[in-house]
Simulated scan of single mutants.
Amino acid sequence: MELKDHILMTRIDNRLVHGQVGVTWTMTLGANVIVVIDEAAAHDVLQQKLMRTVARSSGADIRFFTVDEFVKVFPNVSENQRLYLIVHDPLPIVDLLKAGIPIQSVNVGNMHFAKGKMALNRKVYVDEADLEALRIIESFNVSIFIQDVPGSVSEKLSGLDEVKFVLR
């Protein structure tokens, strides 16, 4: 099995691991390890404990890394590990791709509304930095799609160079 085959999906979700991620997506994908790549969560024991509880309900293990830590350990992934990567926003994915992590596709789950963000759809709001990061991800020939849960309609994001940042 090639290293790229160990990553089943990479998801952007402001909530990191919750019911949809920790149970529904994990079980649908057949992932046995949820990998949270997030600077804050990698050092927050309480947040890890809460996410670990959700992961257990799907029968998956869960690991917490910074981008740099994951880049170092990924080449040593064991033959039986099937990874589901979760990040808070698109910026870590850019760093992972630049470091050579073989991400094939990115699922955008939730990027919450905040002041200074525009809607890409009803659950995904981006600021200029998010949009630029998504453009860079797309430039690596990575497929980007919005999909909340496995049974919902998948909306492919493409042509992001043509998207203009406009607040309404």
Rank of each mutant, 00 (worst) to 15 (best):
V54I: 15
R135E: 08
V23K: 02
V71L: 08
F140M: 12
N110R: 06
L97F: 05
R168V: 14
V17D: 03
E155K: 12
T28Y: 14
G100Y: 04
T24F: 14
R56Y: 10
D61H: 06
L46H: 10
Y125W: 15
E69N: 04
V67P: 04
A40T: 04
K117D: 03
S78M: 14
V54R: 00
V124E: 04
P90K: 04
K4I: 11
I37M: 06
H112A: 13
R52I: 13
S57R: 01
L96M: 05
G109Y: 09
T10K: 07
L85Q: 05
F140I: 10
I103R: 01
Q47W: 10
K164Y: 12
I146C: 15
L8M: 14
A40L: 14
L120A: 05
A119C: 06
V36K: 02
N107W: 11
I7D: 05
R56T: 01
F70R: 06
A40G: 00
A40R: 09
L96Q: 01
D95C: 00
K156R: 14
M111E: 03
N76A: 12
I101S: 00
I101W: 07
L16A: 06
S105N: 00
A133H: 03
P90D: 03
K98H: 10
I93A: 03
G59T: 02
E132L: 14
D95L: 12
D161I: 10
V71D: 03
M118C: 06
D68S: 12
K98N: 09
F74S: 04
V163H: 10
V149M: 15
A41R: 03
D5I: 07
A129P: 00
S58P: 04
A31S: 11
P75V: 13
F74N: 03
D127C: 06
G116Y: 13
V94H: 05
A31G: 05
Q147I: 12
Q81M: 15
Y84S: 03
R82T: 06
Q48W: 04
L91H: 12
H43I: 01
I144A: 09
L29R: 00
D13L: 12
P92W: 07
S154Y: 12
D44V: 04
D38S: 01
I34L: 11
G100V: 02
K72S: 15
S139M: 09
E69Y: 08
M111N: 02
K164Q: 15
I93K: 03
F140N: 02
M118D: 04
V71N: 05
V106K: 01
N32W: 08
R168A: 08
V149H: 13
L97R: 00
A42I: 08
E39Y: 09
G59E: 03
R63H: 10
V153C: 09
R63Y: 13
T28E: 14
Q47M: 15
Q147V: 10
S105F: 05
I146V: 15
I62M: 06
G30N: 04
L96T: 00
D61K: 10
K49H: 11
I62D: 02
F145P: 00
R63D: 05
V166M: 13
Y125K: 08
I34Q: 02
E138C: 08
G100H: 02
A55L: 09
R122E: 14
L157Q: 05
V94R: 02
Q81G: 02
L83K: 07
S158M: 13
S78T: 15
I86S: 05
L131T: 03
E132S: 11
K98L: 12
V142N: 07
N121P: 08
